[in-house]
C-alpha cells in the first residue's frame, strides 16, 4: 500500500468541476428538481386546500375567512352526509370483494399451470388500460335498453322477465359501480399477492404436510401469516385509492341518479369546479384527510411489523 509515491496524472479540475464534486452542493442540486416540484405542486396546494376550506372562495375571486362555516353547512347537507356514508360503504364492499377474488386468483396462479407468464400478462390488462375508457365500456354494458347482461339473463337464459335498469335506481347503480370497481381492482391485488406468495418457501408446505396438515390448515397457518405483511400494504394502497376514487363514478354515473352515488371526491369536484364554490369543494376534500392519515399510519405500522418479523435492519 505504497500510495504516497504514486502521483495521480489527472488534470486539475476546474472551479465548476470542483463545485460539482462538493458533496453538499451536489446533494442540493440533485434534490432540487424533485423536492421543488413536490413542494410547489403538492405541499403548497395541500396547505392551500386546507386554507381554502375555511374560506368562501369562488373561482376567479378571492374569498374571505369564514372559519368553520363550510363544515357546519356541510353537516346539515343531506347530500354530503350521504356521500360520506356511500364512500365508506363503497370502499368497504369493494375492498372485501377485490381482496377475496384477488387472493383467490393469486392462489390459482400460484399453482403449477401452463402459460403462466402469458396468463399473468393478460390478467394485468384491466389495470393498464385507462380507467375512464374501461368505465365507458361498463357504461355501455350497463345500458338500460341494450345491456348485454340483461340480454343474456332475459333472452338467453330466461331467468328474468324484464331488462335491468342498472344505472336508473340508486341501489342498482351502487352495486353496478362496486362491480366495476372490483373488476378494475382484481388484477392489481392478484399480481401483487402472487409476488408475495412466490416468496414463501415450498419447504414450509413440505414440513406442514409431513405434520399432516390439511389444505385449509396449510393456508391458515403457513400462507396467511407469511402473506399478511404484503397483504397489509397492498390493502392500505387499495383502500386509499378506492376511498378517493373519482374516475369510475364520474364516468359511469356522474353521481346520479339523484346524487345517490356521489363519492366525496366526485361531490368535491361537482361543488368546486363546475359549481365554482372552491371553498366548499375544498372543505369536502379536506374532510377526507383524517381517513387518509389513519390509512397511512396503518401502512407505517404494517411496514414496521414486517421488518421486525424478518429481523432485517432499518435499511
Amino acid at each position: 500500500m505504497d500510495a504516497s509515491t504514486w502521483v495521480a496524472k489527472r488534470q486539475p479540475p476546474t472551479l465548476l468541476g470542483r463545485l460539482f464534486d462538493y458533496k453538499p452542493f451536489l446533494v442540493f442540486i440533485c434534490l432540487t428538481p424533485a423536492i421543488g416540484l413536490l413542494l410547489a405542486f403538492l405541499t403548497y396546494p395541500l396547505g392551500l386546500g386546507i386554507y381554502l376550506a375555511f374560506t368562501d372562495t369562488e373561482i376567479g375571486g378571492n374569498g374571505s375567512w369564514v372559519g368553520l362555516e363550510n363544515f357546519e353547512s356541510l353537516l346539515d347537507d343531506r347530500i354530503f352526509l350521504q356521500a360520506v356514508w356511500w364512500t365508506f360503504v363503497y370502499t368497504a364492499i369493494a375492498t372485501v370483494g377485490k381482496f377475496a377474488l384477488g387472493l383467490w386468483l393469486a392462489l390459482l396462479l400460484n399453482q403449477h399451470i401452463p402459460f403462466k407468464s402469458v396468463l399473468r400478462a393478460i390478467i394485468l390488462l384491466p389495470y393498464i388500460v385507462p380507467t375512464v375508457l374501461s368505465a365507458i365500456a361498463f357504461w355501455w354494458i350497463y345500458d338500460p335498453q341494450f345491456s348485454i347482461i340483461s340480454y343474456v339473463l332475459v333472452d338467453q337464459l330466461h331467468w328474468l322477465d324484464h331488462y335491468i335498469d342498472f344505472l336508473g335506481t340508486p341501489w342498482a347503480a351502487r352495486w353496478s359501480l362496486i362491480a366495476a370497481n372490483i373488476w378494475r381492482g382484481i388484477p392489481f391485488v392478484a399480481i401483487t399477492l402472487l409476488a408475495g406468495l412466490q416468496t414463501i418457501s415450498p419447504s414450509l408446505y413440505e414440513a406442514a404436510m409431513l405434520d399432516g396438515a390439511t389444505p385449509w390448515q396449510r393456508f391458515r397457518h403457513v400462507t396467511a401469516p407469511l402473506l399478511m405483511p404484503i397483504l397489509a400494504i397492498v390493502m392500505t394502497f387499495s383502500v386509499l385509492f378506492t376511498f378517493t376514487d373519482f374516475q369510475l363514478v364520474y364516468s359511469i354515473t356522474r353521481g346520479g341518479p339523484i346524487n345517490a352515488t356521489h363519492l366525496m371526491a366526485t361531490l368535491a369536484f361537482q361543488r368546486g369546479i363546475p359549481g365554482a364554490q372552491l371553498g366548499e369543494g375544498a372543505a369536502i376534500a379536506v374532510a377526507m384527510i383524517p381517513f387518509l392519515i389513519l390509512a397511512t399510519l396503518f401502512s407505517y405500522f404494517a411496514l414496521g411489523r414486517r421488518k421486525w418479523q424478518q429481523g432485517s435492519d432499518n435499511d
Binding site: T244, D245, G272, V286
Partner: peptide
C-alpha cells in the same frame, strides 16, 4: 382527488 381544487387555483 384532494389536491385538484387548490391545484386549480
Amino acid at each position: 382527488s384532494i389536491l385538484f381544487i387548490p391545484l386549480a387555483q
